[in-house]
Design a protein around this nucleic acid. Sequence first.
DNA 1: CTGTTAGCGCTTTCAT
DNA 2: ATGAAAGCGCTAACAG
Lengths: 345, 345
Amino acid sequence: MAMRVTIHDVATHAGVSAMTVSRVVNESPRVSDETRRRVEASIAKLGYVPNRLARGLSQRRTHAFGVIVPDVANPFFTLVVRGVEQVAWRAGYHVILCDTQGNLERERGYLEDMVAFQVAGVLIAPVGDRSRPQLRLLTRNNVPFVLIDRSIAGFDGDLVQGDSVAGARQLIEHLIELGHRRIGMITESPDVSTARDRLQGYREALERGGIELDPELVAESSTIDPDAAAEATLRLLALDEPPTAIFAVNNIAVVGVVEAARRRNLEIPDDLALVCFDDIEHVSRLYPFLTVMAQPAETYGTIATQLLLDRLSGRVGQRRRIVVLPADFIVRKSSGAPAATPASG
Amino acid sequence: MAMRVTIHDVATHAGVSAMTVSRVVNESPRVSDETRRRVEASIAKLGYVPNRLARGLSQRRTHAFGVIVPDVANPFFTLVVRGVEQVAWRAGYHVILCDTQGNLERERGYLEDMVAFQVAGVLIAPVGDRSRPQLRLLTRNNVPFVLIDRSIAGFDGDLVQGDSVAGARQLIEHLIELGHRRIGMITESPDVSTARDRLQGYREALERGGIELDPELVAESSTIDPDAAAEATLRLLALDEPPTAIFAVNNIAVVGVVEAARRRNLEIPDDLALVCFDDIEHVSRLYPFLTVMAQPAETYGTIATQLLLDRLSGRVGQRRRIVVLPADFIVRKSSGAPAATPASG
DNA sequence: CTGTTAGCGCTTTCAT
DNA sequence: ATGAAAGCGCTAACAG
């Protein structure tokens, strides 16, 4: 139960003041080589580890970021988080992981906590537009932050996102070219910007293709639960005129669609064509099967963190910055394209 | 640039002392309903968020855990992390995510940081046995911790793990029953306990099956890189007497094996049978194909965190606790078992 | 180059 | 039930 050794213990041991030890620890040049060596020896001898809470309290800021996502286990966000962690680490920051499970209340709590922890900044893929009021917690307390993946209606701030409208449009156009006219969409809450945008892309593509949108073909699911997507799919399949193709709003939804198809003994793509947003790395490496709009998930994290670091360093003005990352359209078997080669991807 | 509001601001506003505000915030019963209401009103009015650094400094302990893993993007560890986060959150703790990328130095740095942050405890899937000396950083500073998934030779402390020996044995016996005699193994560094144990299980199964172990059939790969596993597999496939079946040590290695097989135009399981440790949730839901020993990854995280919480609460003695979690043997197509049904899993 | 003083914002301890 | 004083371990701002 030995008391943790403090800067004063080191100072005493080395025969200097606490300030000098602090300077050595912080690599200030204003210390003679002689004392530096003595202090470093004492630090090693005593096993001194500077207390970051004390430092943070003194400096009014910790070298930590909060990263807030709806679900770490969603492969897209997993990679976002890893990207954040990697860049943060290189810059000497730590990462506090906050998994909201798509829950607004929980997100609010986490936002408060990030303020309480005096983090230097926050990276957040918000639950949805309704996150907006609670994000004021950050602005009010001068905590800089960057939105990842999802924008918030009527809110401006740094943002890293993809082009969901164009991406969805391209996926749907692909299906139309293959001859589909009854194209279903499994989406999630319109409170989520990417869902709105992808629905918009879906609409635009249908319109361009001269196909009237049938509202019955659009079924809403959940952000974090594939089972909800499976049920939504079953609803579509039970229609009088069921879809011949489905567009899944993301990598969670697509799991549900596949399961629903299996339950109905439908072969993909023969009985039901399938496209979706987001790739799943392990899945596509093991079975390159899904036709997807693959987004560079990890890059979302690294770029967003870079934006945050830039802001902290003051190297950047007040203006908001929006980074739009390009996605890869990868045609594989699930859409039933004749050109699809078995091993592509 | 408004100064962050402090406990004193609230105190002044409410016409009480800082101590009273503190009591209200910490839900001490020793406050009259009347003052409590006044203070709560002031808190809401001013938007006061208690500073956790100050609190932590004062209490010499933060309500945070460090979770250290070799790679968050490994689906097994992703779920471990989510499990930890969920339980920690429910208990009022936050999680600092540390991704070592299997690097010992980096792990050491993180361990120091966790001490520096005064975390209440650490959950760690160590890089390997060589992590042992640096774990002393935690013990020396009285930071309780729980090992996850990987034990450390000659080290005792709380531990949550699976039965890798038995699991591997069962997988190999399965292959032997199917008639295989040349069974290759893609493993990782013997510094990692699970790799050692699974190799041991492999050995035992061969022995029981009356098959002599051919060292050429055991190829070492990396913890975090599927490509290394692919190369290791290609080495095995290039042997004069190549294996007819392969046992991949984990879900990272199996990706490499599948890719290598594809490159050699080998069909699984017809040309090459395949079994592995760990399931990958999305993969198995989309394409239930791999015969695996599925471990309850998320439970590793939740149980480990529970052990840690127990220790913090003092509800538990000094003795180390070892929890061994059962794995599910799931037979699917990749092993070529005749009984395998297409939709199982 | 080194030391002193005065906090950072909270809680502990002891009064009242 | 409430408050005053002291201190958690560090660093900013001055001295010298």
